[in-house]
Amino acid sequence: MGSNIIEILKNSQSTILENWSKTQASAMSFNDDLISSQEIQEQSEELITAFLRNLNEENLGNGDAPEFDEVVESLSDLSISRAKLGFSPKETSVFVNGMKNAIIDVLEAQLISQPAQLYAASKKLNYLFDSFSIVTFETFIRGREEVIIRQTDEISEISTPVIRVWEGILALPIIGTLDSARTQVVMENLLEAIVETGSSIAILDISGVPAVDSLVAQHLMKTVAATRLMGAECVISGIRPEIAQTIVHLGIDLSNIITKASLAHALRFSFQSLKLEVRKQQTPANR
C-alpha cells in the first residue's frame, strides 16, 4: 500500500508542482519587488524534487528521518533568505503548507475510491509537513534575529561620533537609548578623543535620547566624572523639558554637572571658558 502512494506521488510531480504554483499565486498577494515569480518556481521545483527523491515507505510521516536532511536544509536556507528579504511569516508558511495541500490534492484525486488508504496517507503526510513547518518557522525567526542583531551592531557603531567643533571643544551628539554597553562605547570614544585632540571641554548633547531613567542618568554622570578625571570639563546639553521633569521626579542630583539648554548655549559657554569671543563683523557703513 505504502509503495503505491509513493509511486503515485513520484509519478505526478509535475501536477503537484502545478497545483502548488497555483495556490501560491492565489493565496499570497505576491511582492514582485521582493522576489521574482521565476525564482519561486525554481525554489519550488528544487524543493519538491528533493522531497520526492528522498521519500520512501518508512520515512513517510517521520520528518526527523535522516533521508530528509536535504529537504530540511533547503527549507532552512529558503526560510532564512525569505526572512532577510522581508517576507512576512504568513507568506513563508503559506509557501510550505501549499506544498502539502498540493500533494494531498493529488492523492485525493487518485485514491478517491480507497478512503481508508487516503486517510492513512494524509495523516502521515500531515505529521511530516508539521515537522517541516516547525523547521521553517524556527529558521525564519532565526533569520529575523540575525537581521536585528546586525542592525543593532550597526546602530551602536555609527551613532556615536565625536565631533571636534572648535579647537579644544568636542561635541558628542547621542542619538537613541543609552544602555550600559553604549555608554561604555561613548565614554571610551570621548576619552580617546580628548587625549588625541587635547580638548579641555566636551559637550554631551542628549537631545536625541528618547528617555532618561535613573540608570541612564547614572551612565551620564559616570561619563562626566571620567571626563573630569582626564582633566577636561563635560557639559550636558539638549535636555528636553520632559526629561528635566523626569530627572527631578526621580530624585537624581545633577547639581554638580554643568547643564545647558541647547548645543548652542553649551558652545557659547565653552567659548567663554576658553576666553574666546564670537561677534558680528563690523560693516564699513557702521564705521
Binding site: E188, I194, L229
Partner: peptide, 27 residues
C-alpha cells in the same frame, strides 16, 4: 593629577572613586 589615561579614568569611575578632592588636567 595630570595625564590620566582613558582606561584608567573609566576604571576609577567603575570602582566608584571619582577622586572628588583632586584637581585634574590633561597634561
Amino acid at each position: 593629577v595630570v595625564g590620566m589615561q582613558p582606561a584608567v579614568a573609566i576604571t576609577l569611575i567603575e570602582l566608584g572613586l571619582p577622586l572628588t578632592g583632586v584637581h585634574t588636567a590633561l597634561n
